[in-house]
């Protein structure tokens, strides 16, 4: 569907595995308090407040939705004005074909607004996430889409001293296991 010039980096990650969203949330808070930089979290289901706990800013997709909706609104009006008023006005049943037909333009304008909002939003959502048909996912743990929640750190940014500290922090907050991942990882987000 889309073509991306993916910047594929080799990454060394260390990640903690959880089985409960509340344990993951408390880990995120504890880890951020100590000043660690979280690479990303992976969850099989949406965990509310996890994004704010990680300090992720609210996405601007809602603005994009408004813009695509406004585009649809304009296109719908333009389409009808061009065809019914400008290009070839048709008198059918004596109904108006000038600007006075504005009320009967409303349904089509409404539908085209919604259509463009939905399509624009979905398209931008896929582009922003670098998603597309056939894009290979970078799965750290095969159960991250099933029942395991992961918190990943870039191990190149950790030294020996604070990686010990991190391990203890993760264990304290209920990590089932701590694993390492190194290999190709498409730089997303």
């Amino acid at each position: 569907m889309f073509c991306f010039s993916k910047s594929i980096d080799k990454r060394n990650l260390v990640y903690g595995v959880y089985d409960d969203e509340h344990k993951l949330l408390s880990t995120v808070e504890a880890v951020r308090e100590k000043g660690f930089e979280i690479f990303d979290c992976f969850t099989p289901f949406p965990v509310h407040h996890l994004d704010t706990a990680m300090g992720i800013k609210r996405s601007k997709l809602s603005i994009a939705a408004f813009i695509s909706g406004a585009t649809g609104f304009g296109l719908g009006l333009l389409l009808q004005f061009y065809m019914m008023v400008f290009d070839w006005p048709m008198n059918i049943g004596g109904k108006p074909t000038s600007y006075r037909m504005l009320p009967s333009m409303i349904p089509v304008v409404f539908e085209s607004t919604i259509l463009c909002t939905a399509f624009g939003l979905a398209l931008l959502f896929f582009i922003r996430n670098k998603m597309g048909h056939g894009v290979n996912p970078d799965i750290l743990n095969i159960r991250q889409t099933d029942d395991r929640l992961l918190i990943a750190f870039d191990s190149d940014k950790l030294n020996k001293f604070n990686s010990e500290e991190l391990n203890i922090l993760l264990k304290e907050n209920g990590a089932i296991e701590i694993n390492k991942f190194s290999g190709k990882y498409a730089n997303k987000n």
């Binding site: 979290c41 949406p46 990680m54 997709l61 809602s62 998603m131 894009v135 970078d138």
Partner: peptide, 17 residues
């Protein structure tokens, strides 16, 4: 699946969408 991994950033956008 379009390369879905369940990253939190994706989920946050997904919820908005």
């Amino acid at each position: 699946s379009m390369g879905w991994t369940g990253s939190v950033r994706t989920w946050a956008r997904y919820e908005i969408v």
